[in-house]
Design a protein around this nucleic acid. Structure first.
Lengths: 284, 284
DNA sequence: TAAAGTTTTGTAATTTTATTACATTAGTGG
DNA sequence: CCACTAATGTAATAAAATTACAAAACTTTA
């Protein structure tokens, strides 16, 4: 989809001259979209047909079509290329890179989101007797967030960070209960075990995890939260954002499905919170 | 900036033929970007120069340039005039709206991020004897996430969800300690009290909150996480994403500042986590 | 290592596409 | 209804992109 990514991925598959074209474009994508094929050819020090061939190799119809795609890739501001944080980066540099990487990963996740399983999950959730959210490590924070969201709906909901408490909760689960397990990799042993335990008690197990993972295989329903594995040391876990937004979507679907009376309840909770707050007037 | 908007705004200022061009484009913008000037002229039933003149009137250099702008306008999917989730929305509808709203809010947050305070915060963090993260409600999940991130750096770090524990931690804080308080509104009484307590013990208090709020006023340093107040009932708290990313940025800045030996440590933690996981081979 | 084959690249011709200059038409106020 | 202005189209021109083909630059194999 994204041409800039396409270029970066295929970078080593290109011939020498085509590589020159790729470098020229990557070094300044913004100016590339305003150049003619002749200008770009001169810039990359190759012939015009080489540029054209390069465009075709990037799965576009030709140079103008390529520029169109490039323009679209650049539309959200600065390139979405995986620019990794480097030792020499200034505050502005790494801040920008992290924002970009997150935006890019969120955008990718949007394109991949599977509304069919979302819908199924909402179905299951609205009929749940009790909902549990479990995650470990970074995903624990996501589970916590989910708890906070669903708690407001006045439905029986729980979340534990302690692996032992999680186990006990799953052992005690029963028909009508829904257990939502959150894991980026889907390979955390303890979570897979939770899935098996809950399932054997006839609870519904929903996984927000990588499809095809051991955890996914044990779930009744999987909502994919796949994000290209980040090998970069500094790269923040963009997957979390993907998981969080799935929680948001589920919560939204949930309220929509439950209708007006549940929304009234939501208002009531919000009102309750207000009382623990300083009044706006206090602010100077 | 956005050509589609530009067209809609100037719609009534156009001459009859130019209007025909506008209509043709608006009725199917996606196909317009793949047409030549001749095709589009025939479609709108006008001459080619008319199309060209139309493009110039839209503040572009000519037809190809216009197409480029149009492509960029279309890149972010179809823009929703009304971004709010509605009762009648389908799964696809509300999922898309939530993604868009989040992307938009993240982008806005990127534009507003204050790298100067980020830099100061990193300075403070690298010199900290102990770091504490506190938040309540939705922000508790963010604090939890921060804990998880900084814990990997092998620095003394803590986070409590219990308001009483938070109090005790702040009462016992001392010179050299850093307390990071997370709150969207900056009006949670208990957090403001934490700030006052910690400050009186000479601890450094950093707030990730709204500037000008009661909490912000009590902090030594404020990193703004402002996001337009969401009045919409369904609208998920986009602010959280903004807070999370600030944590990401801080953590990244932290590792960069601490240099190579700390990065080695990070690798070690990652390795340790691996052992609690199913091996990739197990996956079928 | 030289010859045959294959791939890559460039030159020049061709075609497509966009722009300009100018003529024509339609519309407007006196 | 005439004169003037604005809008539109026609045809010529210029620019840009693509194609066909030939020349290099590599590989492979004897």
């Amino acid at each position: 989809m994204n041409v800039l990514e396409q270029i970066t991925i295929n970078l080593n598959k290109l011939s020498r001259s085509e590589r020159k074209v790729a470098d020229a474009i990557l070094s300044s994508p913004k100016s590339a979209i305003h150049s003619s094929i002749a200008t770009l050819a001169k810039l990359a020090d190759v012939s015009e047909p080489t540029v054209n061939r390069f465009c075709r190799r990037m799965d576009t119809k030709g140079f103008p079509d390529f520029k169109l795609h490039l323009a679209q890739s650049l539309a959200n501001g600065t390139p979405y290329v995986n620019r990794h944080v480097e030792e020499s980066d200034s505050v502005e540099d790494y801040t920008n890179k992290i924002y970009e990487a997150t935006l890019a990963s969120l955008d990718r996740s949007r394109q991949m989101v599977d509304t069919v399983s979302i819908n199924k999950a909402v179905d299951i959730l609205t009929q749940a007797k009790k909902i549990s959210f479990f995650g470990l490590g970074a995903s624990a924070a996501v589970a916590q967030d989910a708890l906070n969201k669903f708690f407001r709906f006045n439905v029986p909901v729980q979340s534990f960070q302690d692996a032992l408490m999680q186990r006990m909760a799953c052992i005690n689960s029963s028909d009508g209960d829904v257990v939502i397990l959150i894991s980026h990799t889907g390979r955390t042993k303890s979570l897979v075990e939770l899935a098996i335990m809950a399932k054997s008690n006839d609870a519904m197990v929903i996984g927000i995890t990588a499809t095809g993972s051991p955890l996914a295989n044990e779930c009744n329903l999987v909502i994919s939260s796949e994000v290209p594995e980040d090998t970069d040391l500094y790269m923040p876990m963009a997957s979390r954002i993907g998981q969080l937004i799935i929680i948001d979507v589920l919560a939204t679907g949930f309220t929509l499905r439950r209708g007006a009376k549940f929304r009234d309840n939501l208002q009531k909770v919000k009102q309750g919170i207000k009382e623990s707050r300083f009044n706006k007037q206090l602010e100077v």
